[in-house]
Amino acid sequence: MRVNKKLLFIYLSIIMFFVVFLFSLICGSSGIYDIFKNIDANMVFIILQVRLPRTIMACITGAALAVSGCVFQAILKNPLADPFTLGISSGAALGVVIAFVFGFASLTSFFIPVFAFLGAMISVLIVYIISIYKKFNSNSMILSGVVVSYIFSSLIMLMFALSPSKNIQASFVWLVGNFNMFNEKVLSFAVIVVLVGIVFLSLSGNIINVMSLGIEKAKTIGVDVERNVKFLFILASFITSVTVSVGGVIGFVGLMVPHIMRKILGANNIILVPMSGLFGAIFLLFCDILSRVLFNSILIPVGVLTNIIGGVFFSILLFKSRENAL
């Protein structure tokens, strides 16, 4: 794609973002409002108190997952890396299951994001400690993430098996990721953290570019590889953990969006990182609208839709790709 076409795509994406954002405000299980006619107090309340927070939540979750997916794929030099490769999702899931099974969640719903965040941070910490010993070798990092995921998943299964609690159903709904039950008290915190994180990661585009060449080459070009990997790893993990804690585990966005963007815009992370964020927000908003309007009056967890749409789309991409690699 030539440069002017890339620019056109960027402009179109920005317009598309605003269109989808607006749609997200006016579409819902209670029908589509015509905002240019009969505005009543009830509608204003629904839009401002229910749909706006939900829409903002979908935006920052999509953007955070896509941006961290993009960063992880480049610094781990693995096209299959995503925000959850390093065990963040299973850590958060374990935290939430503990909160539900041991009854913390029933005390106050505020404990759900707190436990999810603690779980995610514990898994990040374990992977980080192993990575320090392995000098941030990308294969060791991925393997340690996989190992942590397996152990945490087994612990979740163990808890499900031992617990007769009815809360298992509630934690299950959380695990697939949905925006029906997020805690609005933590929303403003999540928005600030994610936006600051995305700005920093976007400004690190060229460092990410150089690090994707491999440790040796990056060092000889003048990059302090270890320091930068640490910084990018912690920042990307942190914004993922925050969004997972608030919105649940939403798959495929972090894997798929950077791939699609790379096909359209090329590999330059200076453009790719912020554009992945924008497109991640558009994609998740779109899925969230679908989840609300697809089956009248039944809200489907958005994580289910992202997995289905993402999976089908990704398979088509794989079939159409001329090269063996994606």
Partner: peptide, 18 residues
Amino acid sequence: IAKIISFLPQDVDVMLPF
């Protein structure tokens, strides 16, 4: 050192389509 010596290692990963 990057301004004094440039080094081309045996294998340079070009995983991303630059």
